[in-house]
């Protein structure tokens, strides 16, 4: 399991930082509380970007590598934010032979992000999925809970436009 590092610029708020610093202050007396603080940070920010891990390392007085090593060990910790709309493209065999790979490439190009990444505005994130069991509708993509079947590359703009908030 290799964790993907987000390239989205960090845009934490003052309030978030204050909440994290409060959690650090509460726990810094005991370095073994590192994970407790990291769990709080994940709650506050939704993920653990560089800047957040650096604050934790500094506050808990542990090397940053220690924080990063822990963050990449546990499944619960994430290094990249999830978008409000997560697009998942089925790359199972049936969808793949029907061109879901092309859809995936096109989405990466349109959104300007790679797999397991999120757009800078936090709106879309992109993941690949194993077979979702809708092979008859291949190729299939999902936006959050909405399933789109027999999608062509040309329809992508239309689908993305539906999520306009």
């Amino acid at each position: 399991m290799k964790k993907k590092i987000s390239k989205i610029p960090f845009n934490g708020t003052k309030e978030q930082e204050a909440a994290l610093q409060a959690a650090i202050a509460e726990n810094k007396h005991d370095k073994s509380n590192l994970m407790v603080v990291m769990q709080k940070a994940q709650d506050i920010y939704g993920y653990l970007p560089f800047e957040v891990q650096e604050m934790i390392a500094e506050g808990m007085d542990v090397p940053l590598e220690k924080v990063y090593g822990v963050a990449t060990f546990y499944a619960q910790f994430s290094l990249s934010p999830k978008g409000r709309y997560n697009i998942s493209v089925c790359l199972g065999t049936a969808c793949y032979v029907k061109g879901s790979g092309l859809l995936f490439d096109k989405l990466q190009e349109k959104l300007g992000i790679g797999a397991d990444e999120c757009t800078p505005d936090g709106k879309f994130s992109l993941t690949s999925a194993r077979c979702v069991g809708a092979c008859g509708l291949a190729p299939v993509l999902m936006v959050n809970e909405d399933v789109y079947g027999k999608v062509t590359v040309d329809e992508i703009d239309g689908i993305l436009a539906k999520y306009n908030d």
Binding site: F50, P63, E65, Y68, T72
Partner: peptide, 16 residues
């Protein structure tokens, strides 16, 4: 440097 990731992807690396 420390151990990052886990399983077969475990690798000695730097933060991020």
């Amino acid at each position: 440097i420390g151990a990052n990731n886990r399983g077969i992807d475990t690798a000695v690396g730097t933060p991020f």
